[in-house]
């Protein structure tokens, strides 16, 4: 069983190929019963358009071991806290600032943080702690765009969600 998991966990994310689906916390389980393989994944965002590509890549990689079914489960919901330490290291290496750890979510209403100080994100290139937000939404659903005044480079930040 560990073999199948190992094979599946090598499949990379279609939009952030420096990460595997296991690094990202998207790969939930791989089971085999009567030669039939069931892999379960969870979407990062509800509308993540990469889900189909993930399913196709997983199916192709596991096909030599048996008939493959890839299932999508929404429970428990994905959060950036599920990204492994290894995944965070790979993100930073690739110039994407990894998300902060959020911890357990409040169950009550989510307050508007209008006047709260902006989150501090360290520049993945030069390490400067003072970077500024360019856009709350980046090229993929998971990222925001930031800029580092110290090294003058723009970079992506994986949103803490």
């Amino acid at each position: 069983m560990s073999t199948l998991w190992d094979v599946a966990s090598e499949v990379t994310d279609p939009e952030m190929p420096m990460l595997t689906l296991a690094d990202l916390g998207v790969l939930r389980s791989v089971d085999q019963q009567d030669g039939r393989i069931t892999a379960t994944i969870t979407p990062t965002y509800a509308g993540c358009p990469a889900l189909d590509a993930m399913r196709d890549d997983l199916t192709a990689r596991l096909a030599e071991f048996g008939e493959v079914e890839v299932r999508v489960s929404l429970t428990p919901p994905w959060t950036t806290d599920l990204i492994s330490d290894e995944g965070r290291r790979k993100l930073a290496e690739a110039g994407v600032a990894p998300p902060a750890h959020i911890g357990p979510r409040a169950v009550g209403p989510v307050p508007l943080t209008l006047l709260a100080p902006p989150a501090r994100v360290t520049c993945p290139r030069c390490g400067s702690p003072d970077t500024e937000e360019l856009s709350r939404f980046g090229p993929t659903a998971c990222t925001a765009l930031r800029r580092c005044p110290a090294c003058r480079e723009p970079f992506e930040h994986m949103k803490d969600i």
Partner: peptide
């Protein structure tokens, strides 16, 4: 999120942080 239909609860659990982020952007 806390109610008993598994699909509605699952959709809601994913939707909460996304909607909070959208509200923050527009605000």
């Amino acid at each position: 999120r806390g109610l008993s239909d598994p699909v509605l609860a699952a959709v809601a659990a994913k939707a909460v942080p996304e909607l909070a982020y959208q509200r923050e952007y527009a605000a």
